[in-house]
Amino acid sequence: MKLKSHLALAFLISVVCIIGFSLMSLWISDHKIVQFDTIVISAIQGMESPALTSVMKFFTFIGSAPFVIVMSFGILFFLYKVLKHRVELILFIASILGSAALNTLLKHLFHRIRPNLHRIIDIGGFSFPSGHAMNAFSVYVIITFLLWRHIPRKWGRTLLILFSFFMILAIGVSRIYLGVHYPSDIVGGYFASGFWLAIAIWTFQFYKEKRNKVRHYAN
């Protein structure tokens, strides 16, 4: 029953994410989301200040590929040496690398040009979906998933969720503030990464439950 509930939840999340991403990409193609992007960009960039720019550059650095790679090695070491996880290493690697590969594929599929309204930093490549948004979503959601059962207190789990939510949101907002992404790029990135993580976690839970059953019958 536990396996069925896990699979049903993962399937539901994947369906919601693929529908959300499909709608977002359709609205972008039909230019029906221009007003939404414009309003959000104006609101976020309207708060510009030297201090806030430094903060946003910090968060965008945290969401960059080089930082994620370095952090991932640290997390892998922690999972292997401290928590003594083995199978979880595969889930973490598959989640991060799969999300990065999916982002590259989708960027070349949609070929959306980056906004050119008010650029604070300069960057090349296509815009949709946001790689930083997908990186942030993948890393912090999978960290939350893997650490959840190791935190005994409810307040500790609540802090973990709030921290992950804050980091995902801050990194996404930083890309809008710095003028290198539309808000729809960020939302689309969250949906795309959510879909991939739902599939990865579904596969992980299925394998883990089946392996536990085999061990139970063997004993």
Score class of each variant (00 low, 15 high):
K210A: 10
I151S: 00
F36K: 03
T203H: 08
G46H: 00
K32R: 15
L162P: 04
K57G: 13
G63H: 00
I199L: 09
D122C: 07
I176L: 01
F77W: 14
F58K: 07
M167W: 06
F59H: 08
V68W: 03
I39N: 13
S130G: 10
L109I: 08
V139K: 02
M1R: 11
Q35W: 13
R114F: 02
R153I: 05
Y177M: 02
M24S: 07
A65V: 09
R175C: 04
L109V: 09
S64V: 06
S164T: 03
V16G: 03
K210P: 05
G63Q: 01
S64Q: 13
I161H: 07
T144A: 05
T38G: 15
K213S: 10
Y140G: 00
P183Y: 06
H216E: 14
G189S: 12
G156Q: 07
Y177D: 02
L160H: 02
V173N: 14
P50K: 05
G179S: 08
S193I: 05
W148D: 00
L23R: 05
M167N: 03
S14T: 02
E209V: 09
L117K: 05
L89G: 14
M167Q: 05
M134K: 00
M134H: 01
K81H: 10
S99C: 01
L26C: 12
H31E: 14
F59T: 06
N116F: 09
A170Q: 12
F61M: 08
F137Y: 10
I13R: 07
V173Q: 11
F166R: 12
L102Q: 08
L162I: 10
R211I: 10
I142G: 02
I62C: 13
I201N: 03
I69N: 10
W196M: 05
